Computed example of a mutant assay.
Amino acid sequence: MAKAATKGTKKAAAKSAAKVAKPAAKAAAKAPSATKASAKPAAKPSAKVTAKAAPKATAKAAPKATARAALKAKAKPARKPVIKLSMLRPSVNNMTVRVFARAAGLDPSETDAWGHTRSPEFLARNPAHLTPMIEDKGLPRGVLWESCAIMQYLANKHGLDKFYPKAPAKRAMVDSAMFYLVGTLYPYVARATYPALGFPQYAGEVGCSDAHPDKKSEAQKAATAAIAEPLEVFHSFFRDGKPFIGGSNPSIADIRLAATLEFLAVIDYALPNWAKDYMAAIEKKLGKAYAEPAGDVRGYIAHVKSQATA
């Protein structure tokens, strides 16, 4: 009896356990689908909210980012190449490079070499003891003198076609004008003005020879009279009705010519009207880039003339 009761009890317990297990299993089986169902509605709204919010956030962030970039650009301007330039302020040869470097935006670092061109340190770098002189690591000997060569080099290096055109024909005219100036016009200007300026002249020039003062005066007058012819060549041939030798903008030849003509003020040379207008147009076009170095030359000329009349 005890055994039978036990068996009956076990069967009854098993049946009731099975009844309880079936609903639990069904519930468990349904639970994942319910979870998925509940997950889907939750995911969709959040995705929509994110999609709607993202464009707004991007739209708001974009102007801010642009503004920040603009501020950074203003705060950190592009670095300009620095040119180390040794120069003499009263000299128009030096004025030429000083004007060009400023007009080209090359930010020259200038050193006044007055009284130092014959020093051992200067001669070690520049045995010709001439100014203007630039220092640049890209040069075979590290330095370069002669104003026209310096302008050509810098224009080529920095792609300054505005001042020194790449087109062979146009460039040839600029080169021709500069070489004609250096070989013909400038020697006349030097002979006419250097004695009045107190500048030493090159070996063999009448101004520094042992010739009689009358002969020196004769040579100076002859040089002054000779200036008119090459000057007219610049007007009629090289400019040929254009505002400048370079066309609508001053070229390196124009800068060299205008600087050269500055010296003629020391002998009160009567420039033709076209030359006066030409020099004024270059100064107006180049602004402070021309006016500041020209001011040093003009100041020295005014000083020399005041000493002569004192």
Rank of each mutant, 00 (worst) to 15 (best):
G183N: 10
P63C: 10
A57E: 00
A228R: 12
T111V: 12
P63D: 15
A59H: 06
K74Q: 14
L271F: 03
V304A: 13
P81K: 10
V99G: 02
A65L: 13
S109R: 05
E292Y: 00
N273P: 00
K7F: 06
K40D: 09
H212D: 13
G247V: 02
K162R: 10
P45A: 14
K276P: 03
A39Y: 07
P120Q: 05
A172Y: 08
I301G: 05
K162W: 00
N273E: 09
T184C: 11
S176A: 14
L139H: 12
P187D: 08
V233K: 11
K7P: 03
P272D: 01
L286D: 00
P77W: 05
H129P: 03
S209W: 05
F163C: 03
K84G: 14
K10V: 11
K30W: 00
V182E: 10
I134H: 05
Y186I: 10
G287R: 10
F234H: 01
K284E: 09
K74I: 09
F163Q: 03
S16R: 15
K76N: 15
S248E: 15
G105V: 08
L123T: 07
P32K: 09
R79I: 12
I83Y: 04
H235D: 06
K221P: 04
A75Y: 10
V99I: 15
V82Y: 06
A29I: 10
I282E: 01
T35C: 00
P23M: 09
S306I: 00
I134Q: 05
N156Y: 06
F199R: 04
K215H: 13
A34R: 12
H129N: 13
Y278L: 01
G207N: 08
P187K: 04
Y290F: 13
K72W: 03
K285S: 09
A29N: 09
I150Q: 02
K288L: 14
W145E: 14
L257E: 04
I301V: 12
A5L: 07
V206K: 09
L71F: 11
V174S: 01
A103M: 05
E262W: 01
W145D: 15
K288P: 03
A275K: 11
A265D: 05
A258H: 02
A67L: 13
D210Y: 04
S176K: 02
K157Y: 14
A289S: 15
R171T: 04
E229M: 00
L257I: 07
H158W: 12
T6A: 14
V49L: 15
A39I: 05
D175V: 15
K56V: 11
L257N: 03
S91M: 01
G105E: 06
G247E: 06
P213M: 07
A25Q: 11
L130T: 12
L139I: 07
P250C: 07
M1N: 07
A62D: 14
E135L: 07
V206F: 07
V92Q: 01
A39H: 08
A149C: 12
V304H: 03
I301R: 01
F100W: 11
H235W: 08
G247I: 04
G8M: 09
A43R: 05
T193K: 02
K10H: 08
E218C: 02
P63H: 09
K162A: 08
A196Q: 10
F100T: 01
Y300R: 00
A225H: 00
T96V: 06
D277V: 03
L160K: 04
K10D: 08
P77S: 10
S176L: 12
Y202M: 10
A103I: 05
A17K: 13
A308K: 15
